[in-house]
Design a binder for these strands. Structure first.
Length: 352
DNA sequence: GCCG
DNA sequence: CAGTACG
DNA sequence: CGGCCGTTACTG
């Protein structure tokens, strides 16, 4: 059993528990434990077999998860998972991959309509049976029909190199607008992940300037297929099919003074952001995408937020390079002043 | 579920 | 309002 | 034992 195998069992268990309506924090604990095992620098089997050691020594893994991990390593399976699999068909878990369908709604589809597969779900949606359910409507039904292909196909991530071709053009074109002061790439593409699930772009406007100009420009951009959602500060669009296969792009527009906080938030990762915000809480501060604020004076002036550096400084850290923002040890490195110097293109020697 |  | 999705 | 990140947007 490799670390990835063990992690997979815990993730599957989390999915099933979630559909069954388990405590969300319990579900999260399983996912977090899975991540810990997957990113562990040593084989989990070796740790389990060492009589001096136990998975409990890993932070985020307690007595329960430790016992489960030991069982998985020693027997190759987990009884609790097998039992849950008998209660919840695989097709129901597959429904979670449809965008807009979460555990609650999937649970209703399974329990109330008895749907056990994507095929059955598609048939029910086509007949209009979904829209009649409480909490569902015509839009949800349409969303299911559009998303069911994604769920069948599995995850659809795009190579960064492909995605960059499209997003670089969009960033460049939006930058030319008079109403924006700057446009930056954020999200996993800024973190230089090999593949991206979607694209994230941040635009800033001068204080008091409306966001509608930028959004209208993006909506009318030659690479944009359709606008999926739009609000005051946020817009989500789907790109044309050719450049990376219907990639989705999120645009966020914030005032100039929030640039640093917004970049920090929008660059992620989610796990990294949670730690940043928890550190803020420990210091009597509150971090959001608009800035860093005092917990006791939330409406008061921002303590930080104009640059990423001052956001990190407010929570007692040096600026952390985006490539490291995964909550995989970068906080310990930053805390002790041992952040590595990353390799850059200039470091590479040879014929390219 | 884990943690303090 | 709850549920879903965003980092 | 209580708390567990913080926000915006959309749907029903």
């Amino acid at each position: 059993m490799s670390n990835v195998d063990v992690a997979r069992v815990l993730v599957d268990l989390a999915d099933l528990l979630e559909i069954q309506g388990a405590n969300p924090f319990r579900v999260r604990a399983h996912r977090s434990g899975a991540r810990t095992i997957e990113t562990l620098a040593e084989p989990i089997a070796g740790l389990v077999e060492d009589p001096e050691r136990s998975p409990e020594e890993l932070s985020g893994i307690g007595k329960d998860l430790s016992e489960k991990i030991i069982s998985i390593v020693l027997t190759g399976k987990l009884d609790q998972l097998d039992e849950l699999r008998e209660q919840v068909p695989a097709g129901v878990v597959a429904m979670l991959r449809i965008p807009g369908l979460g555990p609650k709604k999937v649970g209703v589809l399974f329990k109330d309509l008895g749907l056990e597969s994507l095929d059955a779900l598609e048939a029910a949606a086509t007949e209009g049976a979904i829209a009649e359910l409480k909490g569902f409507g015509a839009k949800t039904e349409q969303m299911i029909l559009e998303g069911i292909g994604l769920a069948r196909h599995g995850s659809t991530r795009t190579w960064l190199s492909t995605a960059r071709v499209a997003v670089d053009r969009i960033v460049e074109d939006l930058s030319k607008l008079d109403s924006v002061t700057r446009v930056s790439l954020a999200g996993s593409s800024r973190r230089l992940k090999e593949t991206v699930g979607d694209l994230d772009v941040l635009a800033t406007v001068s204080e008091g300037v409306s966001s509608s100009d930028v959004m209208a420009a993006l909506a009318g951009h030659e690479l944009v297929d359709e606008v999926l959602a739009q609000g005051e500060t946020k817009q989500r669009v789907r790109l044309l099919e050719r450049e990376g296969g219907g990639l989705e792009l999120d645009l966020r527009v914030v005032p100039e003074a929030s640039y640093g906080a917004a970049m920090q938030y929008f660059t992620g990762s989610k796990e990294h952001n949670i730690v940043v915000r928890r550190r803020a809480q420990e210091r009597g501060l509150k971090v959001n995408e608009y800035g860093v604020f005092s917990e006791t004076d939330e409406d008061g002036p921002a303590v930080a937020g104009r640059t990423e550096e001052d956001v990190y400084q407010a929570v007692g850290l040096p600026w952390i390079p985006p490539e490291l923002r995964e909550d995989r040890g970068e906080f310990e490195m930053a805390e002790s002043g041992r952040l590595p110097e990353l390799v850059t293109v200039e470091d590479i020697r040879g014929d390219l």
